Simulated scan of single mutants.
Amino acid sequence: MRGPEMVVCVKQVPDSAQIRVHSVTGTIMRQGVPAVLNPYDLFALEEALRIKDRLGGRIVALCMGPPQAEAVLRKALSLGADEGVLVSDRAFAGSDTLATSFALASAIRRLSEERPVDLVFTGKQTVDGDTGQVGPGVATRLGMRLLSYVCRISVLDRNRGSIVVHRWTEKGVQVLRSRLPCLITVLEGTGEPRFASLPEMIRAARQPIRVWDRKAAGIEDVRKIGLKGSPTVVGKVFAPARRAERAECLELDAEEPAKAAALLWEKVLSRQPGLAAKCFGVADEGEGKEGSSE
């Protein structure tokens, strides 16, 4: 009995412990920040590896990114994946979640021509985008059943083409039975990711990585990838920080609290001239009433 054919989508992301955000544009600054395998994808890979441990099968780690993203595929190989495929082309630059899901779905469709894919795994989200949209987008494009926020796979019967999973919902844990093939987004904490063994690390270092450009991945229409295929409107995530006014120090006499309060009130009104009108009311003609601080 042959085990399931599995694809695990992984991504190279900036190390979240060292992420910096540009103070003006609000975008993530990747320069000088180490790149790592997306932590949520580690849980997806671990779930696929556990299935392989029990039932056998084959795991292909799939990544879309620049040439240096080969490092995360070698990481996946060192943990037990059988093959790594890097989809890399300058035409992918600037892809949002819509364009990314199209490119990944095209690559998985291309892999299915070699060997029919039973299961596709993704992490629930990435630490740099935090949208959680790519996995569902890939499932939709491939016409696969989507099983999201999965915390456990209890039954997998490839002969009958069925799977039983446990997934978190707002009301508790839901148990679902589905048909294969399907795409599973895996929650963090489902299983402790394993460590790479020395023999697997040596294998990962020596094994060639398949690199596909857009044509090799089966993508002909460049209008669906990169900036042209990305309808997301780029805006500022954070408003530019205001330049703080220099603080003014006041010497107040603790023995005369009334005078201290009056001095503080005077200073506040000098910086907020409209505050008195708000505190004591405004005349019908729009002029502030005269009030007393006593």
Rank of each mutant, 00 (worst) to 15 (best):
T27D: 15
C9H: 02
R158M: 00
T27L: 10
Q207V: 01
G281H: 10
V155K: 14
W265L: 10
F102C: 07
V117P: 08
E170S: 12
A205Y: 11
V8K: 01
G135T: 03
R30F: 05
A244S: 11
A44G: 13
R145E: 09
A17I: 01
V222S: 14
R243C: 06
D96S: 11
C279Y: 08
Q31K: 14
F92T: 11
L55H: 09
V60C: 14
A93L: 06
V21I: 01
P136I: 00
R110E: 12
G191F: 09
I108R: 11
V234T: 10
N159R: 12
E245I: 00
G32W: 05
G57E: 07
T100M: 01
P14W: 00
A99Y: 00
T185L: 03
P136C: 02
C63N: 09
E256C: 06
A258P: 03
W265G: 06
V127A: 08
R50W: 00
E114F: 03
A103C: 03
I51V: 05
V234P: 08
F92S: 15
I108Y: 09
A93S: 12
L62D: 03
Q272K: 11
V117H: 07
T100H: 10
G32E: 05
L252A: 11
G286T: 05
E70C: 13
L176Q: 09
R177A: 10
F43K: 14
D130I: 02
Y149K: 10
L86R: 06
V150R: 11
R206A: 08
R158Y: 05
A216V: 06
E192W: 12
M1I: 02
P4F: 00
G161M: 00
G172D: 05
L77C: 06
A260F: 03
F121C: 02
P193A: 04
L42F: 04
G65L: 00
V24W: 13
C182M: 02
T140Y: 14
V165S: 06
R145L: 06
T131W: 03
A69V: 01
I153A: 13
A254D: 07
G189C: 07
D130Q: 15
E287Y: 15
S178M: 00
D82G: 04
A91V: 07
L147E: 07
E285D: 14
L73M: 02
L104S: 09
A103R: 13
T97L: 05
G281Y: 07
P66I: 00
A44E: 05
K224E: 07
E287W: 12
L45C: 02
I163Y: 14
Q272Y: 10
G3N: 10
R214E: 08
P273H: 14
T100Q: 14
A254W: 01
P67S: 04
E200L: 08
Q174L: 08
Q18I: 03
A81H: 15
V150L: 06
A105K: 03
G218H: 13
E200D: 12
A244F: 04
D118T: 09
V10R: 06
A258L: 05
E83D: 14
W212G: 10
G137H: 06
L275R: 04
W265D: 05
A81C: 06
S178L: 01
